[in-house]
Write a protein that binds this DNA or RNA. Structure first.
Lengths: 234, 234
DNA sequence: TGGATGACCAAATTTCAAATCTGGTCATCC
DNA sequence: GGATGACCAGATTTGAAATTTGGTCATCCA
């Protein structure tokens, strides 16, 4: 029994899908979700409007894939970093990195910040799949906490839910930017450092893992990241 | 040279001002800032609309005073608690308390959350005085950090600005509520505890102050609170 | 005579329907 | 049989009229 792709999705040129996504991305960054029209996307991709709908059932699903890819890429870069330096798998470092990436990438920034302008696409299940942000991010966070607890990096004497909530709240606070201190304005890197230190101090146990333990943690964190990435694959 | 009150503000019955404020408060909580009309306030206070303007120059200033009083009262309650238990002057406890009070009081909750619906009044200087939230809260926070650093409760090896920012960001995150964990929903008290622990772990030094030192801290924290309260007096 | 009042006004806000736009479809074309 | 764009219904925007509301002040008593 061969895989009958044409039944679900008729013959569609993958390269063309890329062109459409690229056009959508440009417009998204330039105008925000609401202002981008399918017409404009098609025009910029030099195809007919109807053709867009040969690739995606709705505008939302098109953008959902775009965002999914963006996250997928981010997670990949992050995984590479951990592979390179296992210490990056420690709680403080991970949260620090999430913050930095989400601060730098305008698309994912929109996701985390809940910018409904761009976010429209995400609040909805994509073809039966769970909402990206909610299930994706929280599942990942929950798994990471599980890993850290299993490796003795976080206290198991307190509920995991407390730790998850704390990370979530603190991360949100730093992303939201605090209430902006009147005087000086701390840069993203400085804020990222403060965030990392805060998470480390608040949640990491005093145990200092040796080289081998660190590698084991990195392995499990990478597995969690991998699982999260897989969810994001179309 | 006698104090000529009638020059600045003509004869006005203080008790009547209270009636007006009470009416305004009721309506504010019931309808939110925007929906409350001066007409309605006057009606509920059983006076003519013009009379309201004998007490306050604008609607905003009326509400500014209302909010100022609310904060004043809160700070007072907080000071009482510290007087009763000096340990309440420690960073974790203080932030915990700020969170709890702002969570419980609907009026001040609107202030911190930046609910522009109710907040309209606050974004503006009141009769030349600085904006309540911005200057008031941040000045207080800065002073508290100063006190804590002076007493060795916080590291002086890092910039105070970093500590202030961290407190601000973390507090904001917990108030914003984190991104609401899908499953269970932690109650306000539990969240307050987590917040307190986070601040304590992230910012308090390991030094455990003895009874005397604690009282000294409490004294200075009370002074800071007192100064903040004074700013709020009309 | 000076504090209290509410009719009054300009400016802001809301209404609401017409005009426009846009996501999605499908008959037609190549 | 894939690609297209005219087409449609529903959503959104527009704009002007209608209404509301913050603030004033001539008038009114106590």
């Amino acid at each position: 029994m061969t895989l009958d792709r044409s039944a679900a999705a008729p013959q569609t040129d993958p390269a063309r899908a890329e062109r459409i996504l690229a056009a959508a991305r440009e417009l998204l960054l330039a105008w925000g979700y609401k202002r981008v029209t399918v017409d404009e996307i098609a025009r910029r991709a030099r195809i007919g409007k109807g053709t867009v709908y040969l690739h995606w059932k709705t505008k939302q699903l098109l953008f959902a894939e775009l965002l999914r890819r963006e996250l997928h890429e981010e997670l990949g870069a992050f995984a590479a970093e951990i592979t390179d330096d296992p210490a990056a798998a420690l709680p403080g470092r991970v949260v620090r990195e999430i913050f930095l990436q989400q601060t730098r990438n305008p698309v994912t920034r929109a996701i985390h910040a809940g910018d409904s302008e761009i976010l429209g696409a995400l609040a909805v299940t994509s073809a039966g799949r769970p909402v990206i942000r909610e299930l994706g991010f929280h599942t990942l966070l929950a798994r990471l906490v599980e890993v850290w607890r299993a490796h003795g990096l976080m206290a198991v004497t307190v509920p995991a839910a407390d730790q998850i909530y704390t990370i979530d709240a603190v991360l949100t606070g730093f992303i939201t930017g605090g209430l902006a201190v009147p005087g000086e304005d701390l840069g993203p890197d400085r804020r990222a450092d403060l965030l990392g230190r805060t998470i480390k101090a608040a949640l990491e146990t005093s145990a200092t893992p040796d080289e081998a333990a660190l590698r084991a943690v990195a392995r499990d964190v990478l597995a969690a990241l991998g699982a999260a990435r897989d969810v994001l694959v179309t």
